[in-house]
Design a protein around this nucleic acid. Structure first.
Lengths: 208, 208
DNA sequence: ACAGTATTGTGAAATAAATAACAGCTACGA
DNA sequence: TCGTAGCTGTTATTTATTTCACAATACTGT
C-alpha cells in the first residue's frame, strides 16, 4: 500500500523529528518539515496522513506523538536484523556506519567469500563463510542482507541468501539481480550516481 | 531536457554494453538490455532514442556505436573532476571505489576538517584543509564534490564549495542541503535505504 | 527477388507522483 | 464569547513516467 518513496520520506521525517525533539521543540508544522526534508508541505501532510496520525490545525503536529506514529508504521523494520556480505573497503565502512545507527535494521552478522577473512573479526563481528549462511541467518533471524561483493559473485550468493530466508537486499554491486519479485532490492549504484551528478554539474542549469 | 532518471539508465546501459562488448558481442536487442538492466524494452528504446542513435530493426543495436553515442550524450561528465570531502570510514571506502572506476568523474583531490588528517596521504591523495578548497578546486578544475562529512559540518562546507565553483554534490550526510537550485545534489541516504529494505522485507509481499 | 519475421521508433494510453486548492478546524486575542 | 488567522486533511488538478501497441523497416532464407 505504501510505496517505497513514502517509506523513505517517513523515515526521513522521523529522523528530523528526533532532532527537533532533542532541540526541545514540541510541535512542528508541515511547512517546516517540508523545509527540513526538502519537500513540499502538501506532500508532508499526505505522507503523515498515511500513518493515521492527525495534527492540530493550530499547533501543527506533536513531535512526540508523530514519532510514535511513524514508529508504528515503519515499526516492523525495527525487529528486522541484517547480515552484511562482503567485508571489503565498502563493507567495512558500512559496518561502522550502521553500528552508530539507531533506526533501521541492525547488522547481526557478517559473511565473506574470501577464505582469508573467515574467522577474523571486523568491527567486533566474526566473519563467517558462505556455507554458514543458513545457520547464521537462522540464529540471527535476519531478513535483510547488505551486498558489498564484487559483481561477479553477487548473483550466486544472493540465490543462497534467498534460499536461507532473506527477503530484502541493499545491493551495492553494480549489477541487476535476477530474483523472484517477492524479494525487495534497493540498488545503490554509486558509479551511476556519480555520473549523474557530473552530468548535471557540467551543464549550466539555470533553474532545476 | 534529459531527466536524472534518463541519465542514470543511460549510464547503466553503457556499463552493460561495455561488458557485452568484452564478452565478444556485436549487437544487442532492446529486450536483452531491458533484461540486464531490470527495465522494460520500450523504455530502453525510448532512452536510447534520446541519444540520437538508431538501431537496426533486424539486428538490434550495434554495441560499439551505441557506446559511442551514449558517451557523446553523457560525455561532458568525463571532463569533469571531483573532490572528496571527509576522509572517514566511508570517505576512504569511496576513494578506493572510485579509483577503480572508469566512468564518471575522477577524484582529483581530498579535503577534511580534521587537522590531524591534513597533510597525510589517503589512497595516494594528499589531504588538504577546508581553507585550501578554492585553490584545490581551481587547480583540479573540479565541479563535483562528494560529501562524506558528519551532518553538522556539511552545510557550512557546502557553502564554501559552492563559492569556489562546485556545481554538483553527492551527499552521503543525512541532511538536506539548503543551496541554490542551480546546484545539483544527489542524496545517498543509507540509513533511509536500509529502513526501506527492512520495511519491505518484513512484509509478506506476494508480488511487487 | 521476394515473402516472412522479428525488431525498431514512436504516438497514444495508462499509471504514478507531486502540487495546488480549499473547506473545516482550533487556539488565541479582544 | 466570538471573530479571526493560519493550519490541517483531502479532493482535484497537473505533471512526470512508464507501458502499450503497432506501422515501418531491414535482414534472412528460399
Amino acid at each position: 500500500m505504501l510505496s517505497p518513496k513514502n517509506i523513505e520520506r517517513l523515515s526521513l521525517y522521523r529522523r528530523i523529528l528526533t532532532e527537533l525533539k532533542q532541540d526541545g521543540s514540541e510541535f512542528v508544522y508541515s511547512s517546516r518539515l517540508a523545509e527540513l526534508s526538502g519537500g513540499n508541505a502538501a506532500q508532508v501532510r499526505r505522507d503523515l496522513m498515511a500513518t493515521g496520525y492527525s495534527g492540530n490545525p493550530k499547533l501543527g503536529y506533536s513531535i512526540n506523538e508523530l514519532i510514535l506514529s511513524i514508529d508504528d508504521t515503519l515499526g516492523k523494520s525495527k525487529c528486522c536484523s541484517a547480515i552484511l556480505v562482503g567485508v571489503g573497503n565498502l563493507g567495512k565502512a558500512l559496518l561502522a556506519y550502521f553500528k552508530n545507527q539507531g533506526a533501521g535494521p541492525a547488522i547481526k552478522g557478517i559473511v565473506d567469500c574470501d577464505k582469508s577473512k573467515i574467522g577474523k573479526k571486523f568491527s567486533g563481528y566474526l566473519c563467517y563463510s558462505i556455507d554458514e549462511i543458513p545457520t547464521l541467518i537462522e540464529e540471527t533471524s535476519s531478513r535483510v542482507a547488505i551486498l558489498c561483493l564484487p559483481k561477479n559473485e553477487v548473483q550466486e550468493v544472493a540465490n543462497k541468501l534467498i534460499k536461507a530466508g532473506i527477503k530484502g537486499f541493499m545491493n551495492f554491486a553494480p549489477i541487476h539481480l535476477d530474483i523472484p519479485d517477492n524479494i525487495f532490492v534497493d540498488y545503490i549504484d554509486m558509479a551511476v550516481s556519480a555520473e549523474k551528478v557530473a552530468y548535471f554539474a557540467c551543464r549550466i542549469n539555470k533553474n532545476k
